[in-house]
Design a binder for these strands. Structure first.
Lengths: 339, 339
DNA sequence: TCGTATCGTTGAAACGATTCATGAACGATG
DNA sequence: CATCGTTCATGAATCGTTTCAACGATACGA
């Protein structure tokens, strides 16, 4: 069944080495030999065995990418950007989905290491970088995505989430909001913690503003809806007058809850701002204000750093850190009249 | 740098065969030998080389999945379902994104074949099944996703798109709409063609209803917005009174266009229904009516069929086809008063 | 005519895990 | 005590590709 170089070599009456040369350095082989070998390949339906190539080469031509949530369009955009850059080098992205779950994250890292991937891009869950560090020590280049490394020993591509959180809340304050709720969690996720820190910083500048934190178990539409319902069920006087959600999925959930029964109007009763500026944000019931991040560019740049690091092979490559700046996008959900 | 079984064997003073047995059949090895080998593995930081395993095994433990568009939440749901089933068997999903582009589709199929994947799940682009057929003939199990095979020679998991299209348009007709526009394309994509066929069927039953087709170059939010703008710019009398979009992404785009400038009200002026019932549909400016498909279940089932087919190895496995039924979900976008 | 480049080609030696026929060691049984 | 089973461990062979030292052939300049 399986056709190997050996078969091709026999069919074209050349040696296996020549077949390999035709495949990899056709210019080093006489033209008519090339033709003969190609004909044999075509006739036998030969397909290279990648496992054997990899075994010989020592590492694969894939890059592992571990994201927190594939359903979040932000991450699929990152993945697309990464894929674009990888494709330029004839490489592939292996997409792993940790689903905000440490075990899954670990099992993807193990898998990628067994696969001897060219490198790993990861948006890690907690603050424990030890597994990632070990991976790197063993020789797999690693680039952190949407996150900077604690001890600056790893390359990273990120967006300044503290600034982003600050932008969001400052905007709410400037448009007259005074009782702000932060919806998001768990705070063990660095992005969440940073955005909250930014929110706190913005609030610190405005003495009459209070910030309340509603922690969610994760960052999904469902969790947002639960949080929104909790707010909706309070007596109106106890409700915040603005909500800053840690990402757009949460914000969409909050919005759904507010809209149900029509009891809470956005932005009239409560203003709402999200984070990531996913495509759907603009198409929401009430078009959603958000903090925009250059998702595809993050992925693209991350692969770029990874390739550099991999090229610098043994010679220790100094970790590079790229930080993009977030951008405020104002839409109807925060545009209404402040009371 | 690279630690191999040989090194582990030396460190534990056993043979390589024993190390392999510890890894794969620990029960066949004496307990204290197991302990000694595990200690050596741990100390040396040994990580199995998957390429070598695969080479020996002949095929990999991954399943390739080629989808039309990763940004479409419908497909990421399918991927999640597939991943779940694959994980149950300790296997992995390799996600490829054809982006509705034949070249990319082909290059992913080639890649997967070189990787000797366990099988391929694909939502193929055009009607040309030849490449897929060839792949299968060469021994890679294939299951079509969201699509049935022309000549019934391939297994498939799909949803009856004709029925879905019919459901959508019938609903529009029943709520009093008479001039219906179908927005979608290209019609070379089977799903689009079928949904349109269903729409035609529903219209055929109602003599006073007209169906207009606005073909789009692909199925994205952007294309939907363009189509929506085209409709919006017509004199009101020439506009349809309902739009059936071939998927929710398009529908969201149409909705955005209608909402801009506030010139077209949904559903008062024009009713709107989409397809797929993605999570965001419920959170749209006007909550979107849609046709629901069991996305995760499709992926799950597809892997299931694939594994069955792979298990039946050489003995030709009769292709199985699973067809799910779509379901109408009515929300505000079609609930308004018919004129 | 002899050296020496250049060009094409060869074939064996890796890469690292798994398999399997073989055999050693030890008990139990008659 | 011989025989038979059972349990463990061994190590060479294998998977398919790539690499590389070596070699024959041809051409060119000295």
């Amino acid at each position: 069944m399986a056709v190997s170089v050996r078969d091709v070599a026999a069919a074209a009456s050349v040696s296996v080495g020549t077949v390999s040369n035709v495949l990899n350095r056709p210019d080093k082989v006489a033209p008519d030999t090339v033709a003969r070998v190609l004909a044999a390949i075509d006739e036998l339906g030969f397909v290279r065995n990648d496992a054997a190539r990899q075994l010989r080469a020592g590492r694969s031509r894939s890059i592992g990418l571990v994201v927190l949530d594939v359903r979040n369009p932000f991450f699929t955009e990152v993945a697309r950007g990464a894929e674009d850059r990888a494709a330029e080098e004839g490489m592939t992205i292996l997409l792993g989905n940790s689903d905000e779950n440490t075990d899954r994250e670990r099992s993807y890292l193990d898998l990628f290491e067994e696969q001897r991937v060219h490198g790993v891009l990861i948006s890690p869950l907690g603050d424990d970088e030890s597994r990632v560090q070990r991976l790197r020590r063993r020789g797999t280049p690693v680039v952190l995505v949407d996150r900077v490394s604690e001890d600056r020993s790893l390359s990273s591509v990120s967006v300044d989430d503290v600034v982003g959180g600050e932008l969001a809340v400052r905007h709410l304050v400037e448009t007259g909001r005074r009782r702000i709720a932060f919806v998001g969690g768990p705070t063990t996720i660095r992005q969440v913690a940073d955005r909250l820190a930014g929110a706190r910083r913005a609030v610190a500048d405005a003495p009459d503003v209070v910030l309340e934190v509603l922690e969610t178990p994760s960052l999904t539409v469902l969790d947002g809806r639960a949080a929104g319902e909790a707010i909706r069920e309070r007596p109106p006087a106890d409700r915040p007058d603005a909500v800053f959600a840690a990402n757009d999925l949460l914000a969409m959930g909050v919005l759904q809850a507010f809209n149900m029964l029509g009891s809470v109007r956005v932005p009239d009763d409560i203003a709402l701002i999200g984070y990531d500026d996913i495509d759907f944000a603009a198409a929401a019931v009430v078009p959603l204000s958000s903090i925009r991040q250059p998702a595809a560019l993050i992925g693209y740049t991350a692969v770029d750093l990874l390739l550099k690091e991999a090229a610098a092979s043994d010679g220790e490559h100094a970790p590079e850190r790229v930080v993009f700046q977030p951008e405020l996008v104002v839409r109807d959900s925060t545009r209404g009249p402040a009371r």
